[in-house]
Amino acid sequence: MTSATTAGRRRWAPYLLLAPMVVWLLAFFLSPLVTLVMGSLQSGSFQEGFVFTFEVANYVHVVTTYWPWFLRSVAFAAIATVCALLIAYPLAYMIVFKSGRWKYLLLVLVVAPLFASFLVRTLAWTTILADQGVVVGALRTVGLLGPDQWLLATPVSVIAGLTYNFLPFMALPIFVSLDRIDRRLIEAAGDLYASGFRAFRRVTLPLSLPGIAAGTLLVFIPAAGDFVNAQLLGSVDTQMIGNVIDSQYLRALDYPTASAISVTLIVLIIGLVALSLRRARTDELF
C-alpha cells in the first residue's frame, strides 16, 4: 500500500463513516419535514385526495382557529419548565456537592422515571391526584382546596404531569454543568470573603447557565408538543396543540390543516427559543 492511497482513504474515511447516518436522517427526518411543509399547502379531502395548490389560507385558518390551543401549550410548557428548573436545580446541586459517594446512585434514581413506561407513570398520577387520594385530602384539610374542588382534569394536574415527565431532562444537563465546575473557583470566592450565597450567585450559578439553558430546551420543546399529559390528566378544557394535531391527523383526517398546525408549532418553538436565549444572554456560552 502506498502512502498516497492511505492519505486518500484517510480523506474519504470520515464521509464513508458518516454516510449511513446522513442518509438515514435525510430520508426519515429532513424529507418528512419537506413533505410536511408541502402538505400544509395542499387542499382537498382525504377521500378525494389532496392537491398542491399553494394554499396559504390553511395557515390563516390555523392561526385564527387554534390560537387558544397554541397559547395554552406555550403557557403550560413555560410553567412546567420553570417548575422543573426550581426542583431540578437544588436536586442537581445536592447530587454534585452534597452526596459524596452516593453521587452515581442518586444520578440513576434521577433518570429512573425514564425507565418506567411514559404512559404508565403518567397514569400513576391519576391514582396520586385522585379525588379520594391522599394529596387532594391533605390539600382539603389545609384549606387549599375546597370540598367541591379537585386536581385531576385541571391545568394543575396537566402541568404537574408535564413537570414530572420532563424533570430528568432538566436535572441531567444542570448536573453535568455543575459537576464540571472547578471547585477551586468556589473556594477562591470564599477566600475572598464571599458569603456562601454570594459565591453561589457570582460563581456557581453563572457557570451552570449552559446547563440551565440546555435543560430549558429539553423540557420546553417536548412539553409544548405533548398531548399525553393533557389527554390522561386533563379535560376538554386543558387540551394542548398536540391534542389538536393528533385528532386532525388520525380522526378528522384533515392532513393539510394538521400539517399547517405542525409547521406553525415548529416556527413558534424556534422563535420562542431564539428569543429566550437572546433575552437570557446565554448565547456567548454556547
Partner: peptide, 9 residues
C-alpha cells in the same frame, strides 16, 4: 423537534 412533529411529518 417536538416528537409530535417528527411523528406527523
Amino acid at each position: 423537534m417536538p416528537e409530535v412533529v417528527l411523528g406527523a411529518s
